[in-house]
Structure formats: C-alpha cells, structure tokens
Write a protein that binds this DNA or RNA. Sequence first.
DNA 1: CCGCTAATTAGTGATATAAGTAATAGAAAATCT
DNA 2: CGATTTTCTACCGACAATATCACTAATTAGTAT
Lengths: 1351, 341
Amino acid sequence: MLRPAYKSLVKASLLQKRLISSKGSKLYKPSPDSASTILLSEDPLVAASSSSSSATSGIINSNDFPLFNKNSQNTTNTTSSQWNNTSDLEFDPFNKSHASAITTMTRTRDVMQLWSLLEACLQSHLMKRAFSILESLYMVPEHKHRFIEDYNMYLNAFSKNEPTFPILKMNEKLTNDLETNFKDINYNDKTLAIMIHHALNFHSTTSSMLLIPTISAYLKMSVNSVREILSNLDILTVSDLNILVNDLKIISPSQLPNSVKPILESLALSSTPVNNIPNEDGSKKLEVKDGSSEERKVDVNHGSMKTASLDPLREVSLNGSTEVLPKDAEKLIAVDTIGMRVIRHTLLGLSLTAEQKEQISKFKFDANENILNMKPTQDDNSDTSINFFEIYNSLPTLKEKKAFESALNIFNQDRQKVLENRATEAARERWKHDFEEAKARGDISIEKNLNAKLWRWYNDMLPLVKEEIKHCKSSLSEKPTDKKGLTKVEINRLGYGPYLTLIDPGKMCVITILELLKLNSTGGVIEGMRTARAVISVGKAIEMEFRSEQVLKSESQTFRDVNKKSPEFKKLVQNAKSVFRSSQIEQSKILWPQNIRAQIGSVLISMLIHVAKVSVQGVDPITKAKVHGEAPAFAHGYQYHNGSKLGVLKIHKTLIHQLNGERLIASVQPQLLPMLVEPKSWINWRSGGYHYTQSTLLRTKDSPEQVAYLKAASENGDIDRVYDGLNVLGNTPWTVNRKVFDVVSQVWNKREGFLDIPGAQDEMVLPPAPPRNSDPSILRTWKLEVKTIANKFSSDRSNRCDTNYKLEIARAFLGEKLYFPHNLDFRGRAYPLSPHFNHLGNDMSRGLLIFWHGKKLGPSGLKWLKIHLSNLFGFDKLRLEDRVSFTESHLEDIKDSAENPLTGQGWWKTADKPWQALATCFELNEVMKMDNPEDFISHQPIHQDGTCNGLQHYAALGGDVEGATQVNLVPSDKPQDVYAHVARLVQKRLEIAAEKGDENAKILQDKITRKVVKQTVMTNVYGVTYVGATFQIAKQLSPIFDDRKESLDFSKYLTKHVFGAIRELFHSAHLIQDWLGESAKRISKSIRLDVDEKSFKNGNKPDFMSSVIWTTPLGLPIVQPYREESKKQVETNLQTVFISDPFAVNPVNARRQKAGLPPNFIHSLDASHMLLSAAECGEKGLDFASVHDSYWTHASDVDTMSVVLREQFIKLHEVDLVLRLKEEFGQRYKNYVKIGKLKRSTDLAQNIIKIRKDLSKKLGRNTTLADEIYFEKKRQELLNSPLVEDRNVGEKMVTTVSLFQDIKDLDALELENGGDEKSGMSVLLPLRLPEIPPKGDFDVTVLRGSQYFFS
Amino acid sequence: MSIPIPGIKDISKLKFFYGFKYLWNPTVYDKIFEKLDLTKTYKHPKELKVLDLYPGVGVQSAIFYNKYTPKQYSLIERRSSLYKFLQANFVDSPLQILKKDPYDWTTYSDLIDKDKVFVPEFQSPERINDSFLTVANVTGEGSEGLIMQWLSCIGNKNWLYRFGKMKMLLWMPSTTARKLLARPGAHSRSKCSVVREAFTETKLIAISDADELKGFDSKCLEEWDPILFSAADIWPTKGKPIALVEMDPADFDFDVENWDYVTRHLMILKRTPLSTVMDSLGHGGQEYFNSRITDKSLLKKCPIDLTNDEFVYLTKLFTEWPFKPDILMDFVDMYQTEHSG
DNA sequence: CCGCTAATTAGTGATATAAGTAATAGAAAATCT
DNA sequence: CGATTTTCTACCGACAATATCACTAATTAGTAT
C-alpha cells in the first residue's frame, strides 16, 4: 500500500515545481543559501501535501471526514494518511474540489474530449484512429493510472471487430501494445476478461486443446483475484461463464459474482448445455486465493421479487415458446418480453367479474403495444386499457391481491423497460400511423393532423441528420492534424461530431421535435421559447437517450443467450440484470459537457427549423386578399429585455393553436415519467431510481465539490440510512384518483378558468394604442399596461400547459400502479425525480393522487380522515375534537360535494386546498354509506404537518422553553397558533406606541391579522431581510390603503414591529440564527493554508475559496455551493449561448454563504428527521410519503406514524446539534486563517512586525500576506511530516501565525472593524468561531406527549 | 446688466455631480457660441424662450443669457446641491430656476400645460422653431437612456417636439455622441445611429478629448470641424470625455412602428448579410425578402452598412408582407413573481 | 533537419444592446483615495 | 485607512443575454541556412 502513495508524492512535488517556475509566482522563492532552504526541501514527503494540485487531498483533507462517522475523532494523522493512500492523485473529473481542481481542469477537459472521441471511433469501428487517440491519452500524466480502462475499451472493441483474429495473435498484439506503445501500463483483470472472452467466443479459431491452457494462463495472471476477472460482466457474458463453470469446469461456482451465481447454478442443472464444448476430462479447477471481500449486498427489487416467488406462475408451463435468437440488440427488446399468456392466465385465475375477465382476455399483454394510455384519442374508456387498480381493489382476499400484484409487477417490469427505452420509437410509430390514416383521407387531413405533420417533418429531417452524421464520421476518420482550410462549421463539427455519431439519427429527430413542442410557451416568451434553453434541453435529452441505449445494449449483450427459460429462471435473470444495470450506469464516466449539449441541440434544431413547415394564411396588406402559403414552423430570432438580447425560438401561431388542442403526452421526457415498478433501490450515490436512466442521489449545482464529498461519504458507507429513507419514499405505490380526475377532466375540457386553472385564450387582446404623439407619460402607461397583459397571457398559457402535462400524465396512469423515484437536493430534502406530476405539486396534483394500497380505517382512521378534511379547509389550529366536529357539521356539504362536484353547491371549492378536499369528500361520502364506517378501505393520504417546522427545530436546538411552547413542542390541550400569537404581540406593541401618540400606530392598530404577519413569520426562518418583509406586508396591506406609496410607508413601520415581535418571541432561535450566520461569514472569509496560488494573486487580497460544509446527523455531507458564477458564451449553430463554465474555479459568495447557512442547516435537519421517520415507517410496514415537513400515510396508520416521527425528532435532538456543528467546524477548518486587525501597540504585533522585517530583508521587497501564508503552510507540513526531524524543525519554526498559538484571549487583542485606523494593522489570525449561545432547559422528550406537535 | 458667471473656484467646492460633467471654461464657451452662430436661426433672440435642462452649475446658462438675453430662460434642476448653488449664484437674476426633475415627463406637462410657467410657441415644421430652444446636459453615464427617449420623441412628435422643429444643444458623453453620429459601415453604427439619421440633422460642435475624434467619421469631422477643449476645462475633471451636439429635427415619412421593428431586429446581427439575416424578422422572412428585393447588391450588404433610406425601403417591403408577425413588441417576462401564501 | 520569424488563428475580455431606472430605497459590503 | 459607490434584496425545487471587436497567446507556415 505504500508504494503508490510514495509515487504520487513524487509526482506532486514535480508538479508543484513546474507550477511555480512556469507561472512566475509572486510567492517567496528562497535562494539556495538562505536559511530557510529546508522549507522548500525537495524531499517528496515535505512537498507532497503542500501541492495545491494534489487532487483530492487538496480539499478533502483529514478534517473533512464526516464527523458522525465512527473513527473520525481519532488523530488526524492517521486519517490523513488513509486519504493519501486511497485517493492520491486520483484522476476523476467528478472528484474535484475547487481549490485543487484548477491545475488539472484543462487536462480534464482534454481527456473528456478524447474519451468521447475514443468512444465514437470505437463505435464507428475506426480502430486505427482509436489507437492514435489512445496514444494521446497515454500522454496525459495524471491519467496514466486510469489509462488501462481506456485500453480495455479499445481492446474489447478490437476483439468484437476482428472476430476471427486468433487468440494467439490477439495475445501478441496485447503484449506488443503494452510493452512497446504503452510501457508504463499494466494490464488489469478486465484485460484478462477480454482475452478470455475472445478465446471463448472465437474458439473455432482456437483449437480446443489450446483453449483450456490459454484460459488457465489468463486466470493465473490475475492481478487481484479470479473473482475479479469474472466479475466483469460487461465483457464476459453469461454463456461465457456457463462454459467456464459448467462445461470446461475451469473455475468453481464460488468464484462467480453473486448476481449471476443463481443463474449459472440453474443452468448447470438444466440438461441442455448452452454450448457444446466437450468436457475435457483432465481439466483441473483452478483454485486461486480470493482475498477480495464480499461485495456490497445489492438488494434490488426486493419486495416485488420475493412475493413473486410464491406466485402461481410456477405452475404454468412455458414450453414451446422458443423463438429465433435475434442478433441485434435493438430487436432483442421486442422479443425480451415475457410470455404474456402466462400473466393473462394468472389473472384469469383470480376471482373476477365476468366483465373483468373479458377485459383481460381481450387485453394484449404486450409491453410494446401497451406502454401506457397514450393514445391520442379522447376516449378514456377504450377497450385497450385496463383499470388495474379497480381489479386489484375488487379482489376479495389478501392472497389474491398479492398474486395479482406480482403478476402485474412482471408485466410492469417489461413495460417500464419499454417506457424508458422505446418511447421515442413509440412516438414515431404513432406519427406514422396517423400519417397513413390521414393520407388515406386526403391532403387536408394531413395538414390538420398534428401527428401526420410531425411524421412529415421527421421524414424531411432524417436525411439531413444522416448527412450530418456522415460528415461527422468522415471528419472523425481523418487525421486530426490537417485542420487547415476548414470552415467554421467544420471546426465546430470536430467538437460535437464524436457525440452525434453515437445515437441513432431517427431517435434524434424524434427527440428534437418532441422537446421543442414541450418547450412551447416557456421562459416568459409569448409564442416560443428561449433558444438557450431549447438547445440545452435537446442536447440533454439526446444524452439521456444515449445513456439508456448504452445500458440496454450492454445488458442484452451480456445476457444474450439466456433470454428464454422458465419463469423462475427469468426472475433470476431479471435480478441479475438489474444489478448489472446499476454497475453499468455507474461506469459511464463521460458526462457530456454543457457546451457540447448546446451544440448538438443547436445542430438538430437548426435542421428542424429548416424542414418543418406549416401552411399559413395571411392578408395581403395591399390587395387585402387572403393569401395562403407555407412558412417555417419554427423561427430563430431575438428579443430585448432591458437592453439585453435574448435568443428566442418562435413557434408559428398556427402550430401553437394546433398544439393547444392536442394531447402531448409523448413529449414528456419518457425516461422521467412516474415508474410502473418499484424504483431501483439507492445503493450508492449514482445508482438508484430509474432502471435505465442515470440519476444522482444529490441534485448538485454543477459543483465538483459537492460531488466529491458525496462520493466520499457514499463509498464510506456513511449514508446508508439516507438510502433507506429514500427507498421507502420510492417504494410507496400510488394510483390516480379516478373520481377527482373525472372532475378535473370535465373542467379542463370546458376551457374556462376554474380555481387556479386559467382559462384557455387563443389570442392576446391588447388595448388600442394611443396616438403616437400623445404625451410620453401616456404612451408609457399604455406600454406598461400592455406588458402586464402580455405577461399575464404568457404566464396563463404556460400555467395551462403545465396543467395539461399534469393531466396527461395522470390520464396515462389511470388505473395504473405508479411509483415516484426520489432524490435529494443539496441539503438532503427529498424530491420526486419525475417532473410535472407528483405529490409535491400543487393542490390539483395532490388531489389526483391516492395510495395504491388501501387500508381499513379502523377506529382512529375515521377520526383522522375527518381531521384531514378540516385541515384542508384551513382549520388546522383547532383542537382535534373541534376539527372532527367541523367535518361532522358539514356532512351534507360533503355529500353534495362528492355527488355533485360541479353541479352542486360546490362547498369543496371554498376549501384552502379544494382538490384535495374534494378527494377527501369522495372518501367520506363513501364512508357515510357504510354500515360500519371503520371497515371502509381508505386510500387517501392523511397529512401530519409540523407547525412551523423550522422554528420547531430552532426551539429544540436552543432548548428554548418559550419558543418550544409556541410551536407545540410542549404538550397542550389546544394547538398554539404562532401567527396569531405574533399578530397579538404586534397589536400590543402598536397599542403601546399609539398611547404614546404614534400616528402610524394609531392607524394600523386594529388591522393586524394573522394573515398579515404569516408570511413574514414563515420567511423569517429563511432569513428574510427588512426590505423583503416590507414588500410582503405591503402586499397584505394593499387592500386597506389605496395609495401604494402610503401602503409602503406603513408597511415599513409595521415591519419593524413585526420583526421586533418575532425576535422577542423566538429570541433563542435568533441567537442561533445569528451564530450560524456569523460562523458562515467567518468561514467563507477564511483562507486555507494550502491555498492555491491563484487565489492570492493580488498580494494582500485573496480570493476566498472555502465554502461552508457540514454533515447531517444522517451522515450526509452538505456543501453550500454558493460561489461567484462565471458564465461564458459558447458558440452554437444558431447563436452563442451563455452558460456557466463547469471547469471554472470560483471564489465563494460570502454573502450567500452567510444568508444560506441558517435555513440550509435547519433544512438539513428537517430532511434528516423526515428520512429517519420514513425509514422507520417503512420498517413498520407503513406507506409513507412526505412533502418536507408534511408527513403522509394512511388514516389508520396516522397514530403509528405520529409515534415514529416524535421518537425520531427526539432522537435527532438528543445530542446538542449546535455544539456538534461547532466541533465539526472546528475540526474541518482547524488550520484556516483569516485576515483581521491587531493593535499595533501590543507585543504580539511588534513581534509580527519584526518577523515581517526579517523576511522583507531576505526577499528584497515588502512582504505580503501571501508570503506569510506560505511559511505557515510550510510549518504545518513539517509538523505533519512522518519524519521526526522534520517535525522538530517545524516546531522550532516561528511564523506570523504561529505566534498566536499561545495567546489565550485573542478577542481582547483583535480589533473589531470599528478600531481606530492608525493603531491597527492587518494580520493573519487563526480562524475562530463565535461562542455558541447558551442552551435553555427545554427537554425535548416532553414532546412525546404533545398531540399538536405534528397534526 | 450681465449675470455673473460662476468661477471654477466656487464650482470645485461642489463634490457630487451625480456622474454629470460640466464645461466651466468661459473662453471655450465663447468659441462654441461663435461656432454655433445662433443668430442665424434665432433672428430675434429677444423673442426666444430657452429651456435649460440639468443646467448644473449654470455657467453655460449665464453665458448664454449674457450673449442673447432671451425672452425667457428657465433652468430645470432638481438635484438639491446644484439647485442651491444656482440659487446662490443667480440671486436677482432674470434666470428662472425651477426645482423640477427633467427626467420626469410630468415636469413638462406641469410647466407648459398646468402651471403655464414656460409656454413655447408652436411653429409649423417647415423650418426650425425660432422662438424656442432647449439646452441640456445629459453627461451622466447612466442617463444615456434619457437622450434616446428624447430622440424617439422627435419621431413621435410629442414632448417638446409638439411645438415644431425645436433645436437642441445637447451635452452628452462622447461615447454616446460617437454612437449617435456613426455613419453606415462605421464600427459603432447601431440602431440609435439610424434613429438619429432618420429623425434629425445633427452636428458635433465640441468635444473634450481630441483622442476621441478617431471614433468619428473623418469626412464628417471635416465638415463639422468641432471645437476641441481639454478635460481640464470640465468639472469634475476625472471621468470620461464629453461632447456637445447640435440637434435639429428633420423631415421623415415612414411607418415608425414597423420601421422600429425592422431596424431593431436587423441591427442585432449587424454583420450578417441581408440575404440571410432577414429570417430573424419572422417565419420565412428570408424567402420573402429575397424574392422582393430586386437590387441584388443590396442583399450582399449587412445591416451595419445600410443607410436609413435603405431601412425605410426594407420597412416598406416588410409592411407589405402578408405573413409578417403580428406582435412587433418584445415581451419577455423574466421575473415571474413567485406566489406564496 | 533544425531554428527562427512572420503570419495566422484561437481564445479571452470588453463593450454595446433598449430606452422610463421592472412594481421598490435603505442597509451592508466592496472599492477607492 | 474612512468615505463613497455598488450591490443586494428569504431558502429550496429551477431551468441560463448575445453580437461583435480588440487584444493576446499560441500555433503554424514559411523561408533561409
């Protein structure tokens, strides 16, 4: 283990040397005879950790270990060396921290470019070009230790490309490559796997006699273990392994990777071997020591698969369903569906009504035929769709339900696969179908039918794309050297070309068309979209398609010979496949750079612009005659906004009108729809959620730092509990509430405004313009008016579009069982991955969703259902009994609402959250019909919301009794209403002020309601400023005062009082807020010692680079990503696009770091609380969902959940989290320094001056703070050196910073910013954090008894 | 009776100029007025009414008054330090000092229509109005927009331009002057140069930095022969150079709304030949204009090379386009306020 | 074949754009003298 | 180092200004030895 570490140290020191000499650093460079030579010792051990370019060790240092990890409190030395051993100079473009990244970023960019080139060349079988790319990659020094992977990729492609290449020749080539071309590179186990695969597959060219010794030799050559070789499932197919284990018996099954072991075991039992290789007798099983540890257990699809094993499928025989093996992976997909007769058979075996049975027998259980209800017909009850939910509900016994679910699951597994992979093709097929139908009816119908039109565009666009790809390929095959004489287009092509060749042109056309339709009316543009957004979206969609295609292809490849077997076997394969997929998704290392995405998008869009035409009508302004013609459907242009140009992609009006009346379900990115089966469990930071689409655990904001920390935590196993919680959220099955859907659908089709759904408007109606020569002020008023109308119009339209999407998705999932895969924002809060329609959406989305599973209300359930309704009406601050009686006093209204939602009194519409109220009314109405209401099977999620959850956490943190009481942490017979309380306090203040004769107070006195202060109290937790709060209050006050100016003045006055009242009431919370803010400020203004040269380029003014980082109680590392943003213009076909440069290393944005820490810290806590509760509820078998601080479960389970969430809250706050945070900060920012002021008169200051003078003499110039940092850095390195003599030298060293070591109360010496100018001087001070505010006596465990804590 | 001219000593006591700069050197003013030769336009200066916007320290106002003693000379200055300065320096003078904001449109409607403090005489647009002159100093870097708005008022014939062709003597940053006066093909040619060309007859009178001249068209400079003075003649001294421009409204006859749309959109891609740039005017623009433009050499030109006459020609074609876009205004809603309750 | 210089180009940074400071105004941080 | 000017303006999910020109660094071409 020491060897690589040492190596890297040498490299690091070399790198640093180069850095300093090449850039002409201002840093101190001692002459060789200077006394401080030792500081720049060439000793690698000294130089090592100092190097600003030593990759991960740069920022993820010893202190950065998550504190909640077991051994983290140990001596920093050991952890530090651990880091160096495991991650030294690791070259991974994602594993970059800001401070360290800069030197290698340019190289990273090059390597990424080379990778994609390589990938493209291999894909296009340009082996020679690929080889020369390999040679280039070999030249990148940081990349060498990863180089073998690229070589393997090449070798594998080579093997496929030259199937008849004899293994001996192959071996020769390998030897030659590694010994002459890439001398520094050693093969690894994957290389061996490729060789074995080659030997096996092309054994016709290898004599059988040779085969076994050859393979044995390769196995013996293993670098780590035989097991490691065999685990390369992307190389060795299942049939390869089968031969090795079952036929040749060269290896024992125990050495197989876990995921395929069962398959092979079952293959071994089967009588017919997959291959007919004779079993040679004398072949020994190779026994190789296997030191590798057990793989991390991967439990994918646990629930569904377990239940599936006891289903009746077992009894169904499947013989006779043999089909010809397809060679092509594409075709495999279609064949790879289960014999659907089996499912049908199973289903028909259940107790169903005759009608249901008929439905099922008619239904084609073919995933390709029935992806979802996406037919463009408006007919919801077409024969082809089945309401699975209804059938499921009608089944009488649990056992039958289970059986049904398991059969459905198998069907859905296939459908999910098709959904994620073939949706674009499905869309294309549909266009074609519609086109042909329309064609039969005549040309006019083609123009009228949107899909037919799209089919035309597709057909016109396809040849262009193909042509472009041809160009790309030819430019790929040319030597890259002869760039001369290339046009701009061609040069651009060199950039994006490699990527473009990777995807099927037809798919790209479909994706482009769909994306543009989807983006209609976004970005505040009236008839179109922003170009920047369009090009990037298309680029992203293409990339996503490529990803899933890759995963699918390699999956088919590996499992190609094992597709059709018995159902049990099928299940084994499905399991193995999902494990395989995880690893594949993980492996894809190339994320396309943003500029490439934009370029690809623009190329495709410009082609579409070129071909897509609509027929238009216009009036000739001269002859006034109607003119018909053809115009491009899309046009690229610009708009100005405040003098800034904005690229716009306009959609022709006729097309927009057509789109308004269409069902556009297909243009929702199919990869991101809700899932039909349980999401893949989260097992590491980039594997979980969708089956074929990669998503990351954390929504990072293009911040390599965040990724680096997350990755470290993930690999360390620190965040398993996070995964648990997230998996519970993902595994909650939902379905669409059909009753609510029907109501929404009716309303929608009327095209009128309803609740918060805006009505449909085809044309914008603007007031007539005043004459041009009117007074400028009149013209201005008119312009303003017009602008407001236009904005309203565009926001209404986009709102309606959004609602349309929600509805369409809901419609597609009617009667289906659906799941929402989740991931986290950077603070740890969970969000569904699927956009548009999910339970975090607006009231309508929530109203449309119910749990798939139903549970009997039981005794408490009914009560909670009633309470729920009351809450939805806004009466959530009443006693529970009163809420129940509220509902009971409206039974008639409920009945009317449920039975005549649109024609009746419409009581439900008066609720705060009408759609959810309606859903609840539907259930309650059914309940009332029952003889025994407790037997009612409820699907309605019941919410339990924290009252001002942020303040609850603050109160718990501060042990603040008063605050805790206000937010219901303390048991009470009735819930506290914070907002009302604050309003009362404000009122009191006003009364006092009014008595003193304050005019403002007199006027405002009686106008203070709960509503006026609510938003301000809420946002106060998020650190709203005085100005912001003023606006909020002004908005509330505006109906009272006519004059806006007046209203604002009053608001200003009132805000002061509201702030005062809040501060008074939640004093402790504010102290913590202030402490967090101050800490964040100091951290983001601190300097890391091994700071990069760049950040100190201007002598005494560094760029501050340290962001605030902490670890949540769940072990999730949180990095505040706020940095100064650097955006660059990127050239594309259409225009330049302004995007942030992912390779930039930017200083932190101290202001945002400061403003963000208090809310982010609290949110990280509430997220932890939620995930803990989710995991716990999951273990208790509850269905659980959440919207941050609102926890949802079945009515019958509310009591259980209540206990869980209280216990988890207590558990969370048992430790003093603030203290813990301070300790973590202390550790992490231990040796950081800040710039402060010191009294010149003190001894300390005089000593510093002396040191500076000495140094200045040596340098022959004035010293800078940078020089001081440099020496302190050296000192720290010496102190941390493994060599005793180094440490001794370090201890004797005196630097301006070391002087502070023995000083006790720095506070006395340091001048606050108010200090007088002459007596203070700027010095480097050690970073100190403010003292944490004292904790109060509140005992968090009392909330066990608080019934209104969450309610 | 002549009005005392504020000296640099008093002026330099003032610190805040809100980014505006003022020429204080009377000798330069003498040259300027000599060059302007205002009596040519204003045959009867005694009948002249002068509106002085942002007079600042009032040096120019005093000199002007002393030279021509017009019928009415009103200074509109709202910035309190400068207003106080003016009041202190012009006690008992015929100069009328009004504390109003020249930025605000209502200032003018109040002045003219409501309070009738300053009522210019309308004159038919056959010649320059010889009883009404506006003098303004809009040298603030951030106030360029105001000049542009005034320019568009010429096109609209509203604001002060409802009284006919009113001459304006306008101080502005030299960069603004360069933009406005740029001729076809010049680097700084932009939409506002076209606006100036379309609506006005404009001359550069004076400029505070000879170096700046290289940004102007040399032929024009020959004709204008502007007066050069130095940064030392300005207060505050620091900052960018300024220029004085004489701006007379001109005759024009075209559909301003369409013309505005065409120029605005074409000038975005000002280096793209017309043969391809027309698409940015709307769906199928290229095809339409390529078929309509008969002079193929025009198609090879870029928007930056076009004269206003050519823009007017393109506008004509545009208005005749059956499929021209029906929304000519830019509506981009960048800040949709988030709803919360 | 190598070294040198001229010439070209690729890359970066600066500036202008439109034209009522978006509905608004006072504190805090950054910059300059 | 204090005054002045600039920069904000509640968190997260979230989603973005662009054309052109001047200038510089880097690469290539060219030519002569």
